[in-house]
Design a binder for these strands. Sequence first.
DNA 1: TTTATTATTGACCGAACGGTAATTAAAAGT
DNA 2: ACTTTTAATTACCGTTCGGTCAATAATAAA
Lengths: 197, 197
Amino acid sequence: MSRPREFDYDKVLHQLMLVFWQKGYKGTSLTDLMESSKLKKPSIYGAYGDKHAVFIKALRLYRMQAMESIQQLLSRENSALKTLELWKSNLLDSDSSNCPKGCFIVNMALELGTEDAEAKVEIDALFEDSEKLLEEVIRRGQKNLEITSRYPARIIAQNLATAQHGVRVLEKAGASPDKMKAILDYSIESILADRDA
Amino acid sequence: MSRPREFDYDKVLHQLMLVFWQKGYKGTSLTDLMESSKLKKPSIYGAYGDKHAVFIKALRLYRMQAMESIQQLLSRENSALKTLELWKSNLLDSDSSNCPKGCFIVNMALELGTEDAEAKVEIDALFEDSEKLLEEVIRRGQKNLEITSRYPARIIAQNLATAQHGVRVLEKAGASPDKMKAILDYSIESILADRDA
DNA sequence: TTTATTATTGACCGAACGGTAATTAAAAGT
DNA sequence: ACTTTTAATTACCGTTCGGTCAATAATAAA
């Protein structure tokens, strides 16, 4: 018993996310959001809330998509090495794709730090979850003797996650895909098991 | 034959840098700069130029200080391992010190990306120079058989630099010093030579 | 067909933004 | 003492910011 909205809520939220991803939180104005969504201010406000609420919804959407993406990596029952290669390709592909540079969450972690409590929830959640998924991959690889057991899986996973953050920094700063590839190649190669013995 | 300025140019620039470091470029208003420097708007403008010019001067100051700091690490003729330990302590100390979280340059790299050409000069310069200094340390360590020669010094240095960026991300996001220490410990330990043979 | 509810629109708000013109004050050169 | 030059202060400018009010339009329920 009411007028239905004339736009696709999820589709528009995706568009809004892209704007925040590209321009940052403070760098995005309501005018930017209006242009990309082709909605007027009160429509955005009515559907998603104020600027900060839109932003948090955008962060959450990004996190969900990112989580799904990396969970798919693991669900396919590949070897640990193959999974890590897919992880690497994923990082390199996103660089050449048409979406904004870098990881939205990492970008926002550095813009907002720990000041925005709601944003911090999303940031911490993605960081922890992706670290845990990497740990699971490493654990598998250690059981299969693909990956060194010289260090605990957790430590190795922490380091891979940190390397990923670092690569995101380089990506955003305009580093070449070749350089990013070299770094990720090393990150993987240096934890292979056949070095041990 | 003119009136001298009543404040210390360099001291005030340092203060202004801290504001940009803490609040980011877009997050810093002229009012913020006025409060921290205790100067009025036209005084700031007269001495340093407009907001963007102040910002670039602040970035350059930070880069100079950072460069000097890491060059000092190398100039003391320690072993490569000792130098890397100092490098690690440096990263961990800056976390517990009273200056803003994270690396100013990394923060700005992620806020501005490649859009601000003048800022990009400073960002690229610090990234490249710190990578080169790390490469020099690694090269020394390889000659002394302290550090593995399984990979070229340049690759190892790239990876250490990337780990540093990643740690800066974690620091800014509020990670514990313990976690950062664990990651840096691994980064160093995993390139020691006594693993090879 | 009427009524209730909600989406959309256009106009508008006060506040904060970066920046500047005009004035006053202070030093140095003559 | 007087002029010149530059710093500091005050008041102000136009623009953009995020947000909202009032009016209109569209749907579903009665």
